[in-house]
Amino acid sequence: MNESDASEALDRAAAALPAAIDPERDLWPAIEACIVSKPASRPTPRAWPHPGWAGQLAAAVTLMAVASIATFMLVDRPQAPAQPDEQALAWADIWAEPARFGARDALSQEYLDARHALTTTLEQRLGALSPDTRALVVANLIEIRQALDAINVALAEDPDNALLQRLLLKTYQDEMYVLVNLNSTTQPIRERIEL
């Protein structure tokens, strides 16, 4: 069989591969949790120890939209040198806080490693953003971390509260989503389109 025939046979085999493959797990629950997240309309149980955290959580969940908009601004902005300010210092304190899941459960090492890697890369890239854009991104990330902290405090006091557990997990997922998006969209354009 010559090269042309072999290529045609390969393409025929490729085109005949099954169009659909089902994932091993149902992705819908996570998708639904994300698309129906409207914390402002959620009832807030009075018994929860930190009523203020619900507002912070609402901010955290809606952050994704804000952060996504912000990331569109990042790519083409002129780059400016990093200038430490009060916000950056406050952020540095919060940023250093390790991820945790209440006082009883532990997060997987794989997740912690991925989160650390994304955070480190993002920190390096933040310095190249314009001051306004950096301030917007950092403000949003601070809100996410504060929400995580508030939920963790609540969960430490009520470790069997399934709703708190789900909300904490969801907020970590949101944080990861934002980190991945920020890391992706702050890559230099040339690097992103390189094949």
């Binding site: 591969l17 099954p18 169009a19 659909a20 493959i21 089902d22 994932p23 091993e24 797990r25 992705l27 819908w28 996570a30 998708i31 989503y177």
Partner: peptide, 24 residues
């Protein structure tokens, strides 16, 4: 989902990443 996951799986070559991509 079957078609989208298949596409993501073939593009990424990795199940976990494909699930994340399909979900997102």
């Amino acid at each position: 989902i079957g078609r989208i996951y298949a596409l993501c799986l073939r593009m990424t070559g990795n199940r976990a990443t494909a699930e994340d991509c399909a979900q997102d």
